[in-house]
C-alpha cells in the first residue's frame, strides 16, 4: 500500500506537442515524474527541454496533449497556476530581480499582507524578513541580512535563495533549468548539494543541465531528449554517461 502511493506519479504528461511558428519543438512527449525522485533531463541544444518545462511552469501552453498533477487533469495557463499546483521553477537568470532585496524577492507575487483591499494591501515586512531568514537557513545558506540586494549575491547564492523560496512555499515539484550554467566549481557543488537535499524534504526535482557529471551526481533517473522526443528514460544505475552521450 505504502509502495503503491509512492509509485503514483505526481506529474504525468501525455502526448505533448508544441509548435513555434513552423518549428515542431515537442513531438508527442509522454512522461511520468514520481514523488520524491530527482530526475535529470538532458539533451542537445534545441532538444526541447526548456519548452517542456516552460509548459509545466506556465510560461507557455502546449498546443496538444494533457497534463495531470496527482492524478487530476489540469490546465496550466500562467505561472501562477503552476505555483498554486506546487510546481516551482528556477531559471539561470529569470528567477530574481537583482535590484530588490532578498526579503522582497522571496515573496514577489505572494506577499504576506497586514490588510488588503481588492487584492492590494500593506506588506507585512517583519514577517517577510523573518521568514526569509528562516527559509534561507533551512537550505544551509548563510547570508548576513535579508535586506541585501540580490544583485550583490554570487550566482550560486542566488540559486540558493531561489531554492529557499521554492521550499518555503512548499513546492511539490521543483524544476531547475540549467541552474549551474556559468557557475564556478565551488558554487556548482553547492547547487548540486541543494538538489540532493530536495529528496530529504520529499520534493520532486527536475534538473536540466548540459553537464552529464552534474546530472549523474544528483539524480535518480535520467531522461534524454533529442529533437523534441524522449530518446532515453532509465534509472541512473542502469545507464552511464557514455550511453547517454552516444545517444545524443
Amino acid at each position: 500500500m505504502e509502495n503503491a502511493t509512492l509509485e503514483n506519479p505526481i506529474i504525468s504528461v501525455r502526448n505533448l506537442h508544441k509548435w513555434y511558428s513552423g518549428v515542431h519543438a515537442l513531438k508527442g512527449v509522454s512522461l511520468d515524474f514520481k514523488p520524491n525522485e530527482a530526475v535529470g533531463l538532458v539533451g542537445d541544444n534545441g532538444a526541447g527541454k526548456s519548452t517542456l518545462i516552460n509548459i509545466l511552469s506556465g510560461l507557455h501552453t502546449a498546443d496538444e496533449g494533457e497534463i495531470q498533477v496527482e492524478g487530476k487533469t489540469v490546465t496550466i495557463a500562467n505561472p501562477r497556476d503552476a505555483m498554486d499546483l506546487g510546481i516551482e521553477t528556477i531559471y539561470q537568470y529569470n528567477s530574481m530581480v537583482p535590484i530588490m532585496s532578498i526579503a522582497r524577492n522571496m515573496f514577489i507575487g505572494r506577499e504576506p499582507l497586514k490588510m488588503s483591499f481588492g487584492g492590494i494591501g500593506i506588506l507585512d515586512e517583519a514577517t517577510m524578513r523573518e521568514q526569509s531568514v528562516e527559509a534561507i537557513a533551512n537550505v544551509d545558506l548563510h547570508l548576513r541580512s535579508p535586506d541585501a540586494l540580490v544583485g550583490e549575491l554570487s550566482g550560486g547564492q542566488r540559486q540558493g535563495v531561489a531554492i529557499a523560496r521554492a521550499m518555503h512555499f512548499r513546492s511539490k515539484v521543483m524544476i531547475l533549468d540549467e541552474p549551474t550554467n556559468h557557475l564556478s566549481v565551488k558554487e556548482t557543488t553547492k547547487v548540486i548539494g541543494f538538489v540532493n537535499s530536495l529528496k530529504q524534504q520529499s520534493v520532486t526535482g527536475i534538473f536540466i543541465s548540459h553537464n552529464m557529471h552534474h546530472v549523474f551526481a544528483c539524480c535518480d533517473r535520467i531522461i534524454a531528449m533529442a529533437l523534441g522526443e524522449v530518446v532515453l528514460d532509465k534509472p541512473v544505475g542502469e545507464t552511464s554517461i557514455d550511453e547517454v552521450h552516444d545517444l545524443l
Binding site: 511552469s57 510560461l59 505561472p79 505555483m83 531559471y91 529569470n94 530581480v97 537583482p98
Partner: peptide
C-alpha cells in the same frame, strides 16, 4: 521595472 522576465515568471 527591475527585471521583467522574473516578474513574469513569478506570476505577476
Amino acid at each position: 521595472g527591475g527585471f521583467l522576465p522574473a516578474a513574469q515568471a513569478m506570476g505577476i
